[in-house]
Amino acid sequence: MVAYAIFTRERTTNQSEMDVYSSVVGAAGAGHALTPLVHYGAFEVLEGAPIEGAVVLQFPTMAEAKAWYDSPAYQAAAKHRHAGSDYRVFFIEGVA
């Protein structure tokens, strides 16, 4: 069943680290079956805490989403995201 990785950036704390993350994260997708669906487009928060932006990635399965997230390439990039921002990140299965 299709799965989605959803990232909401709640606060940037170090723009330099985020610049590094932005420059390396794309390469972390190599060899993984991911489809970007949303990438920091226009948005409106209707409920809950404010966010700075969101990313939604689609994967064929939850296992493939986890394999990408846990991959050495993504984890090397993610350390810059962790150092430069506060995010909420989760996986969710789609409907059949």
Rank of each mutant, 00 (worst) to 15 (best):
M1K: 10
V2F: 04
Y4S: 01
Y4K: 05
A5Y: 07
A5D: 03
I6E: 03
I6A: 05
T8Y: 03
T8H: 06
R9Y: 11
E10A: 08
E10W: 02
R11D: 10
T12N: 09
N14P: 07
Q15W: 06
Q15L: 13
Q15P: 12
V20H: 05
V20L: 07
Y21P: 00
S22M: 12
S22F: 08
S23Q: 11
S23H: 05
G26A: 11
G26F: 10
A27L: 02
A28G: 07
A28M: 00
A28H: 00
G29A: 12
A30C: 10
G31Y: 11
G31Q: 08
H32R: 08
L34F: 15
L34Y: 15
L34S: 13
V38L: 04
V38R: 00
H39K: 07
G41V: 06
A42V: 15
E47Y: 03
E47W: 04
E47G: 02
A49R: 15
A49M: 11
P50Q: 09
P50N: 10
I51R: 07
I51T: 08
G53V: 04
G53L: 11
V55A: 01
V56S: 03
F59D: 00
T61K: 08
E64M: 09
A65T: 01
A65S: 01
K66D: 03
A67N: 10
S71Q: 05
S71K: 09
S71A: 08
Y74A: 05
Y74D: 09
Y74F: 14
Q75F: 14
A77N: 01
A77R: 02
A78I: 05
A78F: 12
K79T: 15
H80V: 01
H80C: 11
R81E: 05
H82V: 15
H82N: 13
G84Q: 02
D86E: 14
Y87K: 02
Y87D: 05
V89L: 15
F91Q: 02
I92T: 13
I92P: 01
E93N: 13
G94M: 07
G94H: 01
A96N: 10
